[in-house]
């Protein structure tokens, strides 16, 4: 089975639009939206949810005001500045300690060392994940609760489920929509995949962040190719970025032009290759025809 990840250091370079088009061009494949923090792929592929599961990224501490003696041990031990001395009073003390759920990292140290056993530490539901059906095949996606931890763990769940679905349905390609950046969800999206397509834009920021994400791919020994989106917004910068990619030994797989049709397709909940055959859509088709043969076992469903 092949896992193809589309990633970028910088946000907003066009990962999701390209993933949706790839999913259409690949014929039936499994789409995995691993940008669980701000997922958008469902806006293009209109998944029909078949299965929905809760996700717990870890536990969270909660001080029971009735049991707190305001000794302050929890505040002393917390390294994340998550304990505040502004909880409600009880019969014994006028004020108790309180854990700010937004700041709590779920380490459990406060609960473990509380002599009064006044701190609850239990698994918190921090998101949901879904197995769905779309017009391009199955899709696995997720929704992390606001301000939740452990995006990496949820990404891992999405990838594991996507592979399960692929093997039950005998599909040999999973296309992963990655998160921006180089941190925990990105690492979880890319490790042990077969190929990364790094999407960037012709700006100095795009150039800078391409370097970061290319270093990350190299760090994990992941083969990668580069595509410049909206390349014609700044042709000289595109040349610079492509030169930078080549100097790092990364093949340039294609250029995609700036095209209002990409947003127009988005408004109509379509992949741009479904909306039109011209412009950026033609460029993405060409990009796919460069990318698909690089997968170790090309899918028999590849439509070029």
């Amino acid at each position: 089975m092949n896992e193809l990840v589309v990633m970028s250091g910088k946000g907003g370079t066009g990962k999701t639009s390209i993933v949706a088009s790839f999913a259409v061009l690949a014929g039936r494949c499994v789409a995995a939206d691993c940008d669980v923090d701000a997922s958008d792929l469902h806006l293009l592929l209109e998944p029909r949810v078949l299965r929905r599961e809760n996700f717990s990224g870890g536990s969270q501490a909660r001080i029971k005001p009735g049991h707190c003696t305001a000794c302050g041990k929890c505040e002393e031990l917390c390294r994340f500045d998550a304990v505040f001395f502004d909880g409600p009073g009880n019969g014994r003390v006028p004020k108790t300690f309180r854990v700010d759920p937004m700041a709590c990292e779920g380490c459990g140290v406060c609960a473990y060392f509380c002599e009064e056993k006044a701190i609850d530490f239990s698994p918190a539901v921090s998101g949901q994940w879904f197995v769905s059906e779309t017009r391009c095949g199955p899709m696995v996606h997720a929704r992390l609760g606001i301000a939740q931890e452990n995006t990496g763990k949820l990404v891992h769940v999405v990838r594991t489920e996507a592979k399960k679905v692929a093997s039950t349905e005998r599909l040999d390609l999973v296309i992963i929509d990655g998160a921006p950046g180089i941190g925990c969800p990105v690492i979880a999206s890319m490790t042990a995949t077969n190929l990364a397509v790094i999407v960037t834009e012709p700006t100095l920021s795009g150039l800078h962040d391409l370097g970061r994400v290319a270093d990350l791919a190299a760090h994990f020994g992941l083969p990668a190719v580069v595509a410049v989106n909206q390349w014609d917004v700044h042709p000289e910068m595109t040349e610079r970025i492509e030169a930078e990619a080549r100097s790092r030994g990364l093949p340039v797989a294609g250029r995609v032009r700036y095209d209002p049709a990409v947003t127009q397709a988005q408004v109509r909940q379509m992949a741009v290759v479904e909306y039109t055959g011209r412009g950026a859509a033609a460029d993405i088709r060409r990009l796919w025809s460069e990318v698909a043969p690089r997968l170790s076992k090309p899918s028999p469903f590849v439509v070029l």
Binding site: G12, L43, L144, A147, P185, T263, Q266, V267
Partner: peptide, 26 residues
């Protein structure tokens, strides 16, 4: 970007937040 722990960490203690968006469905 996003809404998870790195963003929360960045926003803690701010007096005001400007949310930048673009007029697309995403």
């Amino acid at each position: 970007p996003g809404t998870s722990c790195p963003v929360i960490e960045s926003l803690r203690g701010a007096d005001f937040v400007l949310l930048v968006t673009e007029p697309t469905p995403f």
